[in-house]
C-alpha cells in the first residue's frame, strides 16, 4: 500500500515540478494517439456513412467483421506492421521502422474498426423519421446524410473517444514498431513497462496516474459537451 501512496505523491511531484522528461513522454503519447484517431476519423466518417446509407450484398457480414476487429490484439497489429515495415519486409524501403510514424500507422489500423463500427451504429441509432421527413420535404441524398450525421453527433463523438482510449492505452504496437527509444518513441505505456522492469515501481505508478488523468480530462470534456 505504501508503494501506491508514494506513487501518488511522486506523480503529483512530477506534475508540479513540470518534469521535462515526463511531460515530453506524455506529450508524445497524446500527439501520436490524437494523430492516429484524427486520421482514422477522416476516412471512417465518410466510409461509415457509405456503409450505413447504401445497401449491398454482404453488408451484414462486413459489419460483423468490423465488430470482431474491435478486439484485435494490439500485439497482432504490432507484429503485422513490424513485418511490413522492417527492412527485410515489403515496405522496408520507406525507413519507417522504429519511428513515431510507424506507431501512428499501427494505431490507425488498431482504432479504425472501433471508430468505424461505432459510427455505423451511431448512424443506425438515428430515428428513422428524421431522414424520411427530410426526403418528403425534398432533401437531396447528401443533405439527408449530413442531417443524420448531425443527429448522431454525440454517439459519433463517443466513437472517437473510444478510439482514443484504445490508442493511448495500447502498448503492443508502441513497443514492437516504436522500440521504446528514449526521446523518440517512448510513450507513457512503454515507459511504465520499462520502469517496472527496472524495479522503479513508484515512477511506474506515477506515470500510470498521469495516463489515467489524461483519460479522465478527455472524458470530462466529453460529458460536458453531451450535457449541453
Amino acid at each position: 500500500m505504501t508503494e501506491l501512496w508514494q506513487g501518488l505523491v511522486r506523480a503529483i511531484e512530477l506534475l508540479i515540478s513540470l518534469d521535462p522528461e515526463v511531460f515530453e513522454i506524455a506529450g508524445r503519447s497524446l500527439l501520436i494517439s490524437v494523430t492516429s484517431c484524427s486520421i482514422s476519423a477522416l476516412f471512417s466518417l465518410p466510409l461509415g456513412g457509405l456503409i450505413h446509407f447504401y445497401h449491398f450484398p454482404g453488408k451484414r457480414f462486413l459489419i460483423s467483421t468490423i465488430q470482431t476487429l474491435f478486439s484485435i490484439p494490439t500485439v497482432a497489429v504490432g507484429l503485422f506492421v513490424f513485418v511490413l515495415f522492417s527492412q527485410a519486409g515489403p515496405l522496408g524501403g520507406l525507413n519507417l521502422m522504429f519511428t513515431p510514424v510507424a506507431m501512428v500507422i499501427g494505431q490507425v489500423i488498431l482504432v479504425t474498426p472501433i471508430i468505424l463500427g461505432l459510427i455505423i451504429s451511431a448512424l443506425s441509432g438515428v430515428d428513422k423519421a428524421v431522414p424520411e421527413t427530410a426526403i418528403s420535404l425534398g432533401a437531396t441524398g447528401f443533405q439527408v446524410a449530413i442531417l443524420t450525421l448531425r443527429e448522431a453527433r454525440y454517439a459519433v463523438l463517443t466513437a472517437l473517444v473510444m478510439g482514443f482510449g484504445r490508442a493511448i492505452s495500447e502498448i503492443g504496437i508502441a513497443l514492437m514498431v516504436g522500440g521504446n527509444i528514449k526521446g523518440f518513441t517512448r510513450t507513457l505505456t512503454t515507459a511504465i513497462s520499462l520502469e517496472t522492469q527496472k524495479g522503479d515501481i513508484e515512477l511506474s505508478i506515477a506515470l500510470g496516474i498521469i495516463l489515467i488523468s489524461i483519460a479522465l480530462v478527455i472524458n470530462l470534456a466529453l460529458s460536458r459537451i453531451q450535457q449541453r
Binding site: P20, E21, F23, E24, A26, G27, R28, L30, L31, V34, T35, S38, T99, P100, V101, V104, G183, F184, I218, A221, I225
Partner: peptide, 23 residues
Amino acid sequence: ILATLSLLSAALGCSSAEGAELQ
C-alpha cells in the same frame, strides 16, 4: 477541444530539446 488537444500535445512534444518531431 480537438484543436487544443493537438496543439497542446504538439507543444509538449516539441518543447523538449530532444524533440518529438514525426520525422
